[in-house]
Design a protein around this nucleic acid. Structure first.
Lengths: 178, 178
DNA sequence: TGGTACATGTAACATGTTACATGATTAG
DNA sequence: CTAATCATGTAACATGTTACATGTACCA
């Protein structure tokens, strides 16, 4: 048993299943909402992991409900596997930032074009920041259940986006444009 | 021709080859030094991309030199492919931060253990920041060739690490520990 | 009755990681 | 002569992405 340690994606799905059975569809939605800002995953992946975990006995597929909806339930073995995973030292983060690649090779581009890319990305980040800020406000308005952990990850998003914006704004005009 | 657009990893290798022929080994070293902080790649990948690009006529393998070292030269077609890539809108960045996953599921962990993870990661980030700061100082001391672009990406690293440290330090004691 | 949102899944392929295997050159 | 470093590569597998295919239920 315990073939090889869970991957973080599978482990997260198990994490969500602690609160009750969920279908693949729901898991995708939940994951994107809760961890989507610092952990990417998509539908295909979720269904694949569910199949694999079902084969491994970590989850159990329930009877199809309305709309072919198939709820998955975490098993005892699943709980054990999750507990093992969550207690392991988390790995280092990876950032893959294509805009920085383009900047690194910026000498190969006309300045105006680079500046256009930079501006567009800046705008996208500003938008993300304002979304996070709204979420934070909403979380603080709701009187009940101030989840420390969710708040901590949301705060990370805000800190990150603020930093990125500051970085954009201190770029030399030669890169940033006007 | 132009089968499908280059992936960013392959494109970066072509970017480095603009300054003259390099072996796979050298490319790995160069890439890790220049773009390694915001674009991960490893040896296997580099050799695979080189083989593929050689088949596609974007690079040419030279005669083996000392130690089986095989320098690759960029071709005209390679330059064209790179120019096309660098002029495309860069994709959105992806961050995958396992520590944030562990925090998101922090309710499943004894607080001391979570705090231990947090502390260890904080230390690692502090170290990275000081390395970046040193690099910046070194770059500013060298009188010649103040590469705007390299400076911009290095500054990103510094801004990012500073933000992460600030985030660590504002975490509630319940997560951060003492 | 027709469009939209819900729901699942497969196939094919691209990319990333780890382990293994081999050998040359250099410094001490 | 021997250990460390340089250098290349393959195989196997894990993970991530995109496109395709299918069908249900709700709402207007």
């Amino acid at each position: 048993m315990a073939s090889r340690p869970l991957n973080p994606t599978a482990a997260s799905l198990l994490g969500f299943l602690h609160n009750g059975p969920l279908s693949g569809w729901d898991l995708v939605a939940t994951a994107q909402m809760v961890i989507g800002d610092f952990w990417t995953l998509n539908r295909s992946q979720v269904y694949r992991e569910l199949t694999a975990m079902s084969d491994a006995g970590l989850v159990e597929a329930g009877e199809p409900e309305a709309r072919e909806r198939r709820p998955f339930t975490i098993t005892e073995e699943g709980r054990r596997a999750f507990a093992e995973w969550v207690a392991r030292e988390p790995g280092p983060e990876t950032i893959r930032f294509p805009l920085l690649l383009t900047i690194a090779f910026g000498a190969h581009l006309p300045p105006e074009q680079l500046a256009t890319f930079v501006q567009r990305h800046r705008t996208a980040h500003a938008k993300r920041l304002s979304q996070y800020t709204e979420q934070l406000a909403a979380a603080q308005d709701a009187p009940d259940d101030p989840d420390r952990f969710a708040l901590a990850t949301l705060t990370f998003g805000i800190t990150y986006e603020e930093a990125v914006l500051r970085w954009f704004d201190q770029l030399p005009a030669a890169i940033r444009g006007t």
